[in-house]
Design a protein around this nucleic acid. Structure first.
Lengths: 212, 212, 212, 212
DNA sequence: AATGAATGAGTTTTCATTCAT
DNA sequence: AATGAATGAAAACTCATTCAT
């Protein structure tokens, strides 16, 4: 079943996953329309069902695709840098902003699984990305403690979780209207419209305070 | 239209809103079944459409109801206390946990509007609760600065936003499986299952560090 | 579910069951089109699913309806007659022919469950009608033995089964083209077209020979 | 078109016809899945349509194949025997039982065309096998009358039809669940489960009574 | 000759909403 | 005011058949 999909030319795989990601991101799983996705992807309805058993399997495939890109664009890209913890985190924030501009649908998929209406499907999906994130943060925390950037008395997992929370928060802020309008409630007076740079600055401040 | 609803006996209004809250919370807006809600509420399908113009209007009504209870149970209840900032925040956390046990559907509704699939309806709903929250936190921050509990150099809005983030985070952790499983990725080894107390402790720690 | 159906005015129940019987009879279960049935019955697609859980449940309902009419038109109608066995059987044959003219779809439904493609649903359906038939035939056989019409050495069940076979055979001959053309292979030369009367005569002969 | 099929190696022809016979028998014409058949036969979907114009043509081909085997295994095999009518019939019954064990799908195909949902395709198919059967029975009846085994006053065609009915009945009983459960309604008390031997005995009895 | 990926019309089933009673 | 039966459009999924390779 999935093997049929893997045999397709990369560009077609891309087209399908990207189309599906956009529709799922925008409409959510249930409201997403399979025919819509097929049309956007330029394939027939029947073809899709040769590649994925059903809508749910397609969703899982799309989520895997999103996770893979997110991990690559956020973590792997920032893995080897000899940068300080703050610099690394800031780079990731910047990459996140770039990703939110280029492929917001990927972040939206991630945000959507936080909804309680996804409670029955979320856990395995969550695991896929959070496992990768944790590994990255823990390594960074170790480096930060070695550098003296991070207070050695703080528990590693707690710091990793704390950073992850802030990255998540930024991701949510970048693509969820609820988070955007929540941000504006607090900073709308000072800042005309929510800018990613402003959000980053505010979140970086939180982190700096916490870790020193 | 809505006036017809307001004329109903309070218990019936309650029954309808509570039934709808549960179904919307569990299934999400699109997957929620109107007939299901009516059945749970003990009214006829037709009756519902005398009280609310359509499913969407019902959802808004239900969200208002949820906001009202959340504001009352979390903020108004903790308004007059002469307690310290930390104590107040902790009390709110405890009340949040209690609410998550008694009426998890209310928090779930709140969590669900964070999803990007709700982007087109979220902003007015977000405003309703976040406005109340902001007012409360700003007052608390002023008190904290007066007390010397909060560093006076920090911007009020930033601190308020920071606290609100953590309260939201706890709310998400309590009802969203994604957040629960994310929490477990980080603390699953130390803590057998996610306990509200553990979550509170970890979050309180973040706040204390930040504010001093 | 079914109670909703039973609450309908009799004429509407009739319209639905009759429409469904015709379509199922003509096309078979799988090829029968639910929308077709609804259209023929003068109801909406949605309505049907208020009365029957799904296509299969509708089929069972229709089969029950067919059995009820068949039992009533063939057996109950010929129950009290003080007639001889032969006369009774002949009457049943004649009623069968009349039924095949008025509502051939009922006999067709019965014939269709004999197909191996119905093997997984047939047994419970078979039981419904064959149980009634057996009871009737056994009573008739007892009467026949008392009358001296039936050889007392023959086993009751065997005779009942034998008669039932011939009634079934006539039913099949009246509505199945395979059975009709099979009949014509044997008697096409003598008889221009298959006539019910001719079929009855030939089958009656078999029975008479057997029983004496 | 069909010539392409005939040019295939015998084993491949066999594989295709046998696979198709099994699927058509089990599922019925409409529910049978062409891709399934191809897979079972070890050929590609496209290949099938080189050999047969469409599903219907394949079905006809398969039915011919089934008829050919049935005629050979039941009639030709019992043609030259110098046996009595009863013995011949009994042998045919036994061969039928053997066939039902080795290739039940062939009998099932035969049984399935009795269904009214096959009314539009049945007649030409019926003719193919019933013509052969008639010829065989008429010859047997002539022999039986010459032997004195069969009452000379009985019409040849009627006797032939009568015997054919019973052979059909046995075939139906062996592969159709409806007929099996119908048999059990009558004899379930005496006989634990339906055995082919018991069925033969009961049917033979009918025939003997009839013909003497 | 053979493949098997692709098509797209067709099917069952659901459900927000209406309206006669 | 309240009911709940009825609607019918929409949506996921299937499959016989075709055709480029």
């Amino acid at each position: 079943m999935l093997s049929a999909f893997r045999k397709l030319p990369e560009t077609k795989q891309e087209a399908i996953l990207s189309a599906a990601a956009q529709v799922f991101a925008l409409k959510g799983f249930h409201q997403a329309n399979v025919a819509d996705i097929c049309h956007k992807a330029g394939i027939s309805n029947g073809a899709l069902y040769k590649y994925f058993e059903n809508k749910q399997a397609l969703f899982v495939g799309v989520f895997d695709y999103a996770v893979q890109i997110m991990v690559s664009e956020l973590f792997q890209k920032n893995l080897d840098r000899n940068a300080s913890v703050y610099e690394t985190v800031r780079h990731i924030f910047e990459d996140l902003v770039a990703l939110a501009e280029k492929q917001p649908e990927l972040l939206m998929l991630y945000v959507n699984i936080g909804s309680c209406s996804m409670n029955n499907v979320a856990p395995p999906l969550s695991g896929k990305i959070e496992g990768e994130a944790k590994r990255f943060w823990l390594e960074l925390v170790r480096r930060g403690k070695a550098n003296g950037e991070i207070n050695k008395e703080l528990a590693d997992a707690a710091v990793a979780y704390f950073i992850d929370n802030h990255v998540s928060l930024l991701a949510y802020s970048l693509v969820s209207k609820h988070f955007e309008s929540r941000f504006m409630v607090y900073f709308g007076d000072e800042i005309g419209a929510m800018s990613a740079e402003a959000a980053i600055e505010i979140i970086m401040q939180s982190i700096r305070m916490m870790l020193e």
